[in-house]
Amino acid sequence: MSAAALQVATSAAFLVAAAGLAWRLRLHLSRDLLVVGARAAVQLTVVGLLIAAVFAEPPLAVAFIGLMLFAAAWTAGGRLTGVPAPRRRAAVAIGLPALGATGILIAVGAFSPEPRTAIPTAGILIGGAMAATSLTGRRLLEGLTADADAIETRLALGDPIRDALAPTVRQAIHTGLIPAMDQTRNVGLVSLPGTFVGLLLGGASPAEAARLQLTVLLAIVAVELAAAVLTSELVTRSRTGPGDRLLPKG
């Protein structure tokens, strides 16, 4: 049996074993487990074929990155309830830092401009920026409501709007950066991140894998901070008016 067939057969055996255990324990999960397993197999096969085509055609790579950004903006924008043009704002907050950092990493030669490298790099950074945008945006909108009395008190005491909002904005950015900070703090201790594992499986030396993983990880921290700051700026602008005023919701 070839290595590929062995991999597929082993993973299928795990799925069947899980479904069998669920059936034996009467968890009413067997059918769902088999369905999600089959679905994952189909999705990954399709994406694998698509990626193969994209890797071969650089213009398709640009379109693929655009699609990733669109999907990320759609998801994160959905969290910005009550903010006008939420998905456009999310696209700016995610796209500027993620694509900017990808460009810098390629421009300085840290990563090759080939689709095989550029797409995963952009994907990781877009994903990180999406998480920071969603978390920061949601926390900031909650904070603007919860802290409304304190914000108005500061405004009434003569604070400019930026100063009055500073504690709420700071808290939102802190929240938005929690996943990136935790991931960076615990890297190698709690989990081995995808880039590192992928490079090792691909035959890279541990030193090379660690170096590239560190590059990606530190870029993610910077990208997520920039996305969180941009998100708070774009949300703040939508909720403040001239004359240092907090505008009512909606």
Partner: peptide, 22 residues
């Protein structure tokens, strides 16, 4: 609206119904 808001609010001070302690 033509005056700087922070300066206006120092000249015209508002104490709200449920004062927030900073």
């Amino acid at each position: 609206r033509s005056l700087p808001a922070p300066a206006v609010r120092r000249r015209v001070a508002l104490v709200s119904q449920t004062p927030v302690m900073l």
